[in-house]
Design a protein around this nucleic acid. Structure first.
Length: 871
RNA sequence: GCGGGCAUGGCGGAAUCGGUAGACGCAAGGGACUUAAAAUCCCUCGGCUCGCAAGAGCCGUGCCGGUUCGAGUCCGGCUGCCCGCACCA
């Protein structure tokens, strides 16, 4: 029999699916909907193995749901705005738009070779005018609801490139491209008021029970809710307007332990002091010079500047604390001012020791009563400790209890109140870039900020831009920004900032439900039927920002009437990375997998360069990356082995949430299995020809055994896909294929006079096997489906009914343990009662021997599982 | 520093509820077919001990302890690795 020709077959079936529109979703279907979505790609130009893994998993779920009878929405698009297009424009003198659309075309062609069951009719790119036009409407609706606003904000400014940099683009205090020292500048920026939903975004996490715990915990920490005490110090000797200093602390129980107070170098009070006091100004300057990178923070010494101002304790006027400007106090958390309690905070202790400030123990360990010396005493809040300075009084209680009682007391005394603080900041979306969605507002000297009127939307990006100057090409454009004010008709200027590309990806999933609507972002009747996404799949790297922004955006769209739900993603799954061995050459450089030969000698492996044969060291397994040169091109794999092989390998072995190690041997194993299935199905088809058309009334022992395996496999694989345990599903499929193979080898020689019931069972088994592999290897499955003479396409077939009565065994073989050690087995009827089983067990020689003639004290029978005799 | 996860053969991993640890695959070794190779098929494959053999026994899921008739799984304490956040008051 001819080997399966993946190349020919895959092209053929991809064309067939396209002509039949097999994967188009219907917005008006009466079937239950299922929305399966993988994170859409950035059009870099080529797909990589991470994409292959992500889209294969999504495709298995989509195909599974379709065969379950759902109306499946499984779309694809492009997250197409962003900096790389501008960099390419600068380097290669190509227009960002041309570059992006050329990349999309190349990647679409690559994706199509994977045979994904996508509804391509809904495809769009976020840089399509049709898409960002609707995004501008959403922005204006949010502006009207005060969910979008402008505020002055500190940014990283690259003075050479004339651009704002994200924190990730600042490396050791320098711009990642220009290498220039980054300045902190105050600019007026656009924000989304995500903080208004902080509490809701936090509490709603509890309801997302089909999300990974890990992601929920990361979001919880990111939102960072903390409860504490808000109060004000009275300042003695402060400049005008700064008589009161608001402070937030999460430890109200330590209110009688501070020995200093401090404000951030960015605090308005610090700035006011700097104007009159050159030394203060110099200190603040120094603080700003110390970088914000992790390494800097780890090593930075605690530094302070004594302002000479005294902070008077609101509960006891006799306590007057020196007020410092301190480099470790952050302006954007709490009020930018702290109380320094050295005994119970390590930073405060370091600071106190450096400046010779006293240390007051508020509480001490119950057991030892030991006082603080070099290490601050910070026990878990639930620990019971001895308070020696609690609100001036002693007591023994947990910190939690003391905090609660302190708060209540201070509120009663009238100088403090309970306050909730969040770590979550409002979302700054202004980017001084060309290749993004223009913020649709006009600045007018008379009317201030004027939204672009509806009839003037979209604010389209001009195509005739140049990148010969650093900075924002929109700003440099000779005419684009000069407009008349829509309100007063006077000379005005367009906003030249564009939106953060995270905005584009915060609602694309909703747009997929009706991308044809050119009058509104969504069509409520449709979006409310097709959303939420039932299964979303993507990398953990988006666990915080993208997912949090999307959750916020869905709420903002609800507030502006574009959707009727809060949560966009009902089920969420984060898949692991694709990793590969690395190869190091003698000169220290990396070699790519395509450049080397591996020789196996027993259990040891040696790598040599194909060109020249020089020895190469096999290095650690790392994430596939260009710098380590350990990438494998999906095109090469699909060209050599076919898409089905690549898909099968991606799902085998490693659990989907863990990293998968790409190896040549593994791919070959997958390819071998594909060919094996092809033979198995063709052999089965030959045998099944002699089978009766109608299902036999009774089945003999061999046929029954095979049918049990068939329906057992069906049950295990389907429930495995449901739980996304793809690697286990594949093992069950292989096990079932082995079982069918055994039957064929045992009976193949007798094929002509094979019992009709067995022939029928073989036909059934082969058909089920093909259907079970169809979500993973869809092309091969179609080819096999045809070889078996089945009607229609397997991609459009419904799952067969699982015959549950075949899953029930008539007899059970139970392992028999004596004192927890296996000594034998008994086979009993399914309905056997315990006394009957116990008698059978005690009759076993091995059991009698193990008991050494003594009677059993107790017999534990776990039905259908195990028997344990206690001697 | 804070938060979370993981640890099972040579390797990736499997083991709904606590119930025969090592499914399935990769690699390796042996054999069959073949002029040969490829392909395919069969056998072995955690360790130790005993046995000519069929087989039998003991040990074994990072380490120490506990709960239980029974622990990879539950509890307490360690060790190592990985991830996220981080001067968050």
């Amino acid at each position: 029999m001819a080997r399966y020709n993946a190349k020919e077959s895959e092209q053929h079936w991809q064309r067939e699916w396209e002509t039949r529109q097999s994967f188009a979703a219907a917005n008006d279907s009466t079937k239950p909907k299922a929305y399966v979505l993988e994170m859409f790609p950035y059009p870099s130009g080529r797909i990589h193995m991470g994409h292959v893994r992500n889209y294969t998993m999504g495709d298995v779920v989509a195909r599974y749901m379709r065969a379950r009878g759902n109306n499946v929405l499984h779309p694809m698009g492009w997250d197409a705005f962003g900096l790389p297009a501008e960099n390419a424009a600068m380097q290669n003198r190509i227009n960002p738009k041309e570059w992006t659309y050329a990349n999309i075309a190349a990647m679409r062609a690559q994706l199509k070779t994977m045979g994904l069951s996508l509804d391509w009719s809904r495809e769009f790119a976020t840089c399509d005018e049709d898409y960002y036009a609707q995004q501008q409407k959403l922005f204006l609706d949010m502006l009207a609801k005060d969910l979008a606003f402008r505020r002055k904000s500190k940014v990283n400014w690259d003075p050479v490139d004339h651009t704002v940099l994200a924190n990730e683009q600042v490396i050791d205090g320098r711009g990642w491209r220009s290498g220039a020292i980054v300045e902190q500048r105050e600019l007026t920026q656009w924000f989304f008021r995500i903080s208004a939903y902080a509490d809701e975004l936090l509490t709603a996490l509890d309801g997302l029970d089909r999300w990974p715990d890990k992601v929920r915990i990361m979001q919880r920490n990111w939102i960072g809710k903390s409860e504490g005490l808000h109060f004000e110090f009275s300042l003695i000797g402060a400049p005008g307007g700064f008589e009161k200093l608001p402070v937030f602390t999460t430890r109200p129980d330590t209110m009688y332990g501070p020995t200093f107070a401090a404000v951030s170098p960015d605090h308005p009070l610090a700035k006011a002091l700097a104007e009159k006091d050159p030394k203060a100004a110099a200190f603040i300057e120094e603080c700003h010079r110390i970088g914000t990178s992790q390494a800097d923070i780890d090593t930075a010494e605690k530094l302070g500047y004594d302002t000479g101002i005294k902070a008077q304790h609101p509960g006891d006027a006799s306590i007057r604390l020196p007020l410092y400007i301190a480099n470790f106090v952050l302006m954007d958390y709490g009020t930018g001012a702290i109380i320094g309690c050295p005994a119970h905070d390590q930073r405060d202790l370091d600071f106190a020791r450096k400046y010779g400030l006293p240390v007051i123990d508020v509480f001490v360990p119950l057991a030892t009563g030991e006082r603080v010396t070099d290490v601050a005493f910070v026990p878990p809040k639930t620990d019971t400790v001895r308070y020696v300075q609690w609100a001036g009084k002693p007591g023994v209680m947990t910190c939690e209890e003391a905090m609660k009682r302190s708060l209540a007391m201070f509120e009663r005394e009238g100088w403090g109140r309970r306050e909730v603080n969040f770590r979550l900041r409002d979302w700054g979306i202004s980017r001084q870039r060309y290749w993004g969605c223009p913020i649709p507002v006009i600045h007018c000297a008379r009317c201030d900020v004027v939204p672009v009127p509806d009839q003037d939307l979209p604010v389209a990006l001009p195509d005739d831009v140049t990148f010969d100057k650093p900075g924002n090409a929109l700003d440099h454009h000779p005419t684009w920004k000069y407009v008349k004010c829509p309100q007063c008709g006077g000379d005005a200027r367009r906003e030249t900032d564009t939106m953060d590309t995270f905005v584009d990806s915060s609602w694309y999933f909703a747009r997929f439900t009706d991308p044809w609507n050119d009058t509104a972002p969504t069509t409520p009747a449709v979006v409310n039927r097709m959303m939420p996404v039932d299964q979303y799949i993507g990398g953990v790297e988006h666990a915080i920002l993208h997912l949090l922004y999307s959750r916020f955006f869905t709420r903002a769209m609800k507030a502006t009437g574009h959707i009727a739900m809060d949560e966009p993603f009902k089920g969420m799954f984060t898949q692991g990375m694709v990793v590969h061995e690395t190869y190091r050459k003698a000169d220290g450089g990396y070699a790519s997998p395509a450049e080397i030969n591996i020789a196996v000698d027993g259990s040891s492996r040696r790598a040599t360069l194909i060109d020249g044969g020089a020895e190469v060291t096999i290095g650690s397994i790392e994430k596939m990356s260009k710098s380590k040169r350990n990438t494998v091109d999906p095109d090469d794999i699909i060209g050599t082995y076919g898409a089905d092989t690549a898909r099968w390998f991606m799902l085998s072995d490693s659990p989907p949430d863990r990293d998968v190690i790409w190896s040549e041997e593994g791919v070959k194993g997958a390819s071998r299995f594909m060919q094996r299935l092809w033979r198995l199905v063709n052999d089965s088809a030959a045998v099944a020809k002699s089978a009766p058309a109608a299902r036999p009334a009774t089945f003999g022992a061999d046929a029954l055994k095979l049918r049990k395996a068939t329906h057992g496999a069906l049950d295990k694989v389907l429930s495995g896909i449901e739980r996304l345990h793809f690697n286990v599903c594949l093992a069950h499929i292989r096990e079932f294929a082995n079982a069918l193979g055994d039957v064929l080898t045992r009976h193949a020689t007798a094929a002509p006079d094979l019992a009709p019931d067995l022939a029928w069972a073989i036909g059934e088994a082969a058909a089920v096997l093909v259907q079970l592999v169809s979500p993973m290897m869809p092309h091969l499955a179609e080819e096999c489906w045809q070889a078996l003479g089945q009607k229609g396409l397997v991609s459009e077939a419904h799952w067969p009914q699982i015959e549950r009565d075949l899953l029930v065994e008539e007899t059970h073989t139970l392992p028999v343990q004596v004192n927890g050690r296996k000594r034998g087995e008994v086979t009993v009827a399914a309905g056997a009662q315990n006394p009957e089983i116990e008698a059978a067990v005690l009759a076993l020689d091995a059991v009698k021997q193990a008991l050494g003639g003594k009677p059993a004290r107790k017999i534990i029978v776990v039905p259908q599982r195990i028997v344990n005799v206690v001697g």
